[in-house]
Computed example of a mutant assay.
Amino acid sequence: MQTTLANGKRLHTFKPRDLIPLMRDVIWFLQQGAVKTLTWNEEGTLITLGYWGTGDVVGQPFSQIVPYQIQCLTRVKAACISLHQWNWSSDAVRRHIQQTEELLYILRSDRIPQRLFKILIWLAQKFGRKVQQGQLIELPLTHQELAEVAGTTRVTVTKLLNQFERKGTIYRPYRHAIVVRSSNPYYQAEFDRNKIETMP
């Protein structure tokens, strides 16, 4: 579905799992929902490049990677903006760069358990909402998708999530929901580190 905003920009609506069209001279400004960017290697293994939400910008001009896709995780509303209309000094561009660096830092963690838990903390800070037990992530992410971004296997992710839950560091109240418990000292330390490092 497509509508035109008062400023003349075209607003499109996408369903979960839809692929957002790629054009060399167009970027997408996300006004609602969440997407992931991804590619795959010669063996066909999917590689998640990032997760993006409200206020972020995504699109082919931000990537030199081929192949490259933008897949909707939820219902998404996004404005289609041509490059010559975009203000490249905007906060959205700064956030895009910061987020890419944050994920790169996380993926340099040597041990898979630490890497996966840091990814959960990052998702909680970006997409979560505060609940009594901590930060609630409500994204339809499968164990396979978490494995793709963490650089491990689905079996390992399932095993680690079960371990995290037994230790009380996370809580899964229902399908596609994870609460990262803020009472965990490691969570607070990581949260404080990210808060400082992402300050403008």
Rank of each mutant, 00 (worst) to 15 (best):
Q125W: 05
R129G: 06
Y105S: 08
I70F: 04
V131Y: 04
G50S: 08
L136S: 02
L141M: 13
F117K: 06
R111E: 13
F117W: 07
W86V: 06
V131E: 15
A92T: 10
A78P: 01
Q135T: 03
K118L: 14
V131L: 09
Y68G: 02
Y51I: 00
Q135R: 14
R115G: 08
L116V: 15
F127L: 03
I137P: 07
R111A: 08
I106D: 14
I106C: 06
K77Y: 02
L49V: 09
P140H: 05
Q114D: 15
I106V: 15
V58C: 14
W88N: 13
V131W: 07
E102Q: 14
K126R: 08
I97L: 14
K126W: 02
E138Y: 04
Q71H: 03
Q69M: 09
T48H: 02
I137G: 05
S89F: 01
R95G: 01
G50P: 03
R129T: 09
L123M: 08
V66C: 01
L103S: 05
Y105N: 11
I121V: 15
P61Q: 00
K130F: 02
E101I: 15
I119T: 13
L123K: 04
Q114P: 00
T100V: 05
Q99I: 00
L136A: 02
G134L: 04
I137A: 09
Q132T: 14
F117G: 01
V131K: 13
I97M: 06
F62R: 05
K118W: 06
T54I: 15
F62C: 01
T74W: 12
G134F: 08
G50Q: 07
I65N: 06
G53Y: 01
R75H: 08
F62N: 10
I70E: 01
T100M: 09
R108W: 05
R75W: 03
H84C: 08
A124G: 15
G59D: 03
G134M: 03
T54G: 13
E138R: 12
R95N: 12
V131R: 10
K130V: 13
K130M: 11
Y51A: 02
L46Q: 11
Q99D: 09
D91G: 07
Q98H: 10
Q135P: 09
I70D: 02
L104F: 00
H96R: 12
L116Q: 09
V93A: 09
A124P: 10
C72R: 06
F62E: 08
I70H: 03
N87G: 11
L136C: 05
L49W: 08
T74G: 12
D110R: 07
T74K: 07
Q69T: 02
P67R: 10
Q60A: 12
G59T: 01
